[in-house]
Amino acid sequence: MSLTPDLWWPPAVLALALFVDAAMSLHPPKFIRDCLSPRTHINTSSAAYCL
Rank of each mutant, 00 (worst) to 15 (best):
V13N: 04
A17L: 14
I42H: 09
T40L: 06
A23I: 00
P38Y: 07
D21P: 00
A47Q: 09
H41G: 02
A22S: 09
Y49F: 15
L7H: 07
F31H: 14
R39N: 08
M24E: 04
L7T: 02
L18M: 08
I32Y: 02
L16I: 11
N43Q: 09
L51Y: 11
P10Q: 13
D6K: 14
P29L: 06
L14G: 07
F19P: 00
C50G: 06
M24I: 02
R39Q: 12
P10K: 15
T40H: 05
L3K: 12
P11L: 03
M24G: 00
L7S: 08
L18Y: 10
L14H: 09
Y49P: 01
D34W: 01
W8M: 10
A12H: 08
L16W: 15
K30N: 02
T4D: 11
S45F: 08
D34M: 06
V13F: 12
V20A: 12
V20W: 07
L7R: 15
T40E: 08
W8G: 03
W8Q: 11
L18K: 07
W9Q: 12
L3A: 11
L51W: 09
C35K: 01
Y49G: 03
A47T: 08
A22P: 01
S37N: 11
L26I: 01
L7F: 12
H41L: 05
Y49I: 01
A12R: 13
S37R: 15
L3T: 12
R33N: 08
V20D: 05
R39M: 07
W9R: 09
P10C: 10
L7W: 06
L16P: 03
V13S: 10
S2D: 12
L26V: 04
D6F: 14
K30F: 03
C50R: 05
S37P: 00
